[in-house]
Design a protein around this nucleic acid. Structure first.
Lengths: 162, 162
DNA sequence: CCGGCATGGTTCGACCATACAACTAATTAG
DNA sequence: CTAATTAGTTGTATGGTCGAACCATGCCGG
């Protein structure tokens, strides 16, 4: 019944919209840590810190950004002294992105702030509902990945930064 | 046990982040309708279309944007022929923003496109899970609303996906 | 071994999103 | 009537993103 689907779709829309609003996603910066750092840099740093050295194109895939965007982003991270470019043995085209000790420290602070935020959210969910909510989100992620055109790989990418 | 909470919080974080990425809430343009229109314009038009004529500052409040931003935004909408500025009886400082018939048509298309997007997402959720997911989102919205005070104040912008 | 094509990155130009500050014009308060 | 307030505009700055043009480098097939 298309009509029912439509109605349910609208409810879904309303819920997701409401969540985005209430949780303040979409905030241009937000990053609640000592030094206000741009969101995109936080994402990139988090990814690099979590999953060892990556090449730029790998990072671009992870973040779903264009390589040009990532190039610039990495430049900014390097400017902060958080990331370093190193040569990749065997293929001179590739660039290894390594997080510096400074960067590791910054990433730790960011991760802690982020974790605190989500833990607060978690605490506002009744304990017995928490597994249900998490399961539902997993389903939702899969659905979103599936509806994302044909190229869709990646069922449930592990993530880090928000 | 705080350790368990932390772990669960991290899972929650991962899921939400993954969803934001997978559903493309980060991509600023998106808007999958006939003519690709900027998200912010879509939001503004939707607001005006829904809640009759408004003044610019009212619109700014609704969208939680600066008046300067809204001024430019309205300029763009006028450029598309979707909105018209009219005088406000009694106070020459105010500007009434009225949606033109063209604009009303465009708003309808946008709403339809948005609905289609969410309906597609819905279809990628197994039918028997749909109510569960919707319930979980409701819980999540409540939790987010509850944790909203204290977290980054200042502005909670409108939702994504135009 | 060399020319052609693929691949990873950089730079450039173009938009969009948004904020804050400075300014004008109209209103309201003292 | 002057001073403060309010609505809007314009200028400047930062950030996020893309696509196209371009430069290396690496890989193949003759």
């Amino acid at each position: 019944m298309p009509d029912e689907d439509l109605a349910q779709g609208l409810v879904l829309q309303g819920r997701i919209t409401a969540f985005v609003r209430a949780f303040g996603l979409h905030q241009p910066d937000q990053t609640p840590c000592g030094t206000p750092i741009p969101t995109s840099e936080a994402h990139a740093l988090g990814e690099l810190d979590r999953d060892g050295p990556l090449t730029q194109s790998t990072l671009a895939q992870r973040l779903r950004l264009e390589k040009s965007t990532v190039s610039r982003l990495v430049g900014q991270l390097i400017g902060r002294g958080w990331v370093r470019r190193a040569e990749h043995d065997g293929d001179a085209r590739l660039v290894w992105l390594e997080v510096t000790p400074e960067g590791r420290r910054a990433a730790g602070q960011l991760a802690a702030a982020r974790a605190a935020r989500f833990e607060e959210l978690l605490h506002n969910i009744p304990a017995n509902q928490r597994p249900v909510v998490i399961d539902a989100l997993t389903t939702l992620v899969e659905a979103a990945a599936g509806s994302e055109q044909q190229a869709g790989q990646s069922s449930t990418p592990r993530a880090g930064t928000a």
